[in-house]
Computed example of a mutant assay.
Amino acid sequence: MLTMKVRIQTAANQTEVEVVIFAPVDSHEAQSIKTLLEKVPSETKSLTFYQGTTKYYLKPSQILFFETDGRQIHAHTINDVYVTKHRLYELEEQLPNSFIRISKSAIINVDHVLSITRSISNCLVQFQNSHKQVYASRRYYKQLQERLNEMR
């Protein structure tokens, strides 16, 4: 049986919650706790998106993936496509752990992944309840596979 100490320490200058796990080397229990904590939904604020002159406020959980098209970043939901003024690197920093970069030009929400079809040159990612799909590059495939295994 796993015995565990839990301690909360507060600090006046602390601006966000930080969790540190002290564990023996190669502790499977510590890895399980880390995975569970990462799944806890964060109070991520809505992001601003645009369609023409209309401004929309969407939660990140509604987004299937982000991709670049020329100099614009498009956010894809199940039924719509929006434009955002953020760059991919900015989105990577702001988005919850369920998002991962899969190529130089795309970030996906692994919570919405239905399937991955791997070929010699690339990897096709398909999404639940949507006809939309995006390609992952070979360079990011291993990270994508690891993240999907962690999340499932």
Rank of each mutant, 00 (worst) to 15 (best):
V17E: 14
L2E: 08
R139I: 01
N97C: 15
R147H: 10
T68S: 14
M151W: 10
S137A: 09
H28S: 10
S98F: 11
L88E: 01
S98W: 07
S46W: 03
K132V: 05
T3N: 07
E43R: 14
Q126R: 10
D26L: 11
Q72M: 10
S27E: 10
Y57R: 12
Q133H: 10
V113W: 02
N79H: 12
R152Y: 03
V17A: 14
V17H: 12
Y89N: 11
Y82F: 12
I78T: 11
L64K: 07
R138T: 00
K34E: 01
R101T: 03
S103P: 03
R71I: 05
R118Q: 06
Q14K: 15
Q51L: 03
Q72F: 06
V83S: 10
A11K: 14
T54K: 13
E150A: 15
T35Q: 10
Q51H: 03
Y141P: 00
E38R: 15
S27V: 09
S130L: 04
E67A: 09
A11M: 10
G52P: 01
S130F: 07
L144A: 07
T54F: 01
P96I: 04
L47T: 11
S27P: 04
N109M: 12
E38K: 15
L36F: 04
K45T: 06
L144D: 00
E92G: 04
N79W: 00
L37Y: 08
Y135M: 04
T54V: 10
Q126H: 05
T15N: 11
D26I: 09
V40T: 05
N109C: 08
Y141Q: 11
Q143R: 12
S42R: 13
M1T: 12
S61W: 04
R101W: 05
Y57M: 08
I107V: 09
T35L: 11
L148I: 12
A136G: 07
F99Q: 01
G52E: 03
V40C: 11
S98Y: 10
L47E: 01
Q72I: 09
S115D: 11
S42V: 10
D26Y: 01
Y135E: 02
R147P: 02
S105F: 09
V40S: 06
E16F: 13
V6Y: 03
T48N: 03
S137P: 04
Q133C: 13
S27N: 06
L37I: 14
Q126N: 06
Q145W: 00
L37D: 01
F65C: 15
F99L: 02
K59A: 11
S137E: 08
Y89G: 06
M4S: 14
E93M: 13
N109F: 11
